[in-house]
Design a protein around this nucleic acid. Structure first.
Lengths: 116, 116
DNA sequence: CAACTATATCGATGTATGTCAATGAATGGG
DNA sequence: CCCATTCATTGACATACATCGATATAGTTG
């Protein structure tokens, strides 16, 4: 990605219905596609699944590297994409970075489909 | 696409919950990601939106080329991806190919998120 | 059968994406 | 203050993908 675009806020901007349009505008489509792009990778779905199923509701990178069989930089990369899409929340506590589901984000992403 | 893989059935195979697993299996993740991949493109979302909003519930390729500003081969390509994902249904009547939403497919795709 | 129309497929091309090894940045412990 | 640990960033590379023009296929009509 050239990434000179706006930081992209993910779900926060992709949830607005545009009633007057005959069909999905290019901008709305782009914003919604951005969220689905984050969901369009098996390893990212598994990351979401692990975080969702975690006892404490959160997981650090070191917990996520081994079950997926990916390198630490790769996991970090995927987590960033999920955070940018508004699906995961990142909290740094000491040396560790804890990732947790953004409340309601999954449901909101599902709602993007209903408002096509 | 190398496309020597199995034809990939999209939603039909991506909807099975696997209760015993600690988290999403690699295979389930792959199948679900396949559906989200189909949704991860702005033009494909707009195609779905147009078909959904069509009076008759269906649209032919010639109706879809102009509003998106894409070439006919490109539109055909995107439609094939949506059909393979189980989201659209294709019916050839005479010279025209009519595309319509697979009933319940959108809701089913949304359900994939709930069963992470 | 020939000509026309609507779609699909093919081949090429530029860009995006997933992945890793190497490196950098921040924190905590001796 | 140095070192170990945890995570993020960078650079490189191979693969996947979106797109188009050209071509093939199939149905329609003369």
């Amino acid at each position: 990605m050239t990434s000179l675009r706006t930081p992209e806020v993910g779900l926060a901007a992709a949830c607005c219905p545009t009633p007057g349009q005959p069909f999905l505008s290019a901008e709305d489509a782009r914003r919604k596609a951005f969220v689905f792009k984050a969901l369009a990778d098996p390893n990212r779905l598994r990351l979401l699944s692990i975080v969702k199923g975690a006892e404490s509701g959160e997981a650090c990178v070191c917990d996520l590297t081994e079950p997926l069989g990916l390198s630490q930089p790769t996991v970090s990369h995927h987590l960033k994409i999920l955070v940018d899409a508004g699906l995961l929340h990142r909290e740094k506590r000491g040396t560790w970075a804890y990732y947790s589901l953004v409340p309601g984000a999954i449901e909101q992403a599902a709602g993007l489909l209903a408002s096509l």
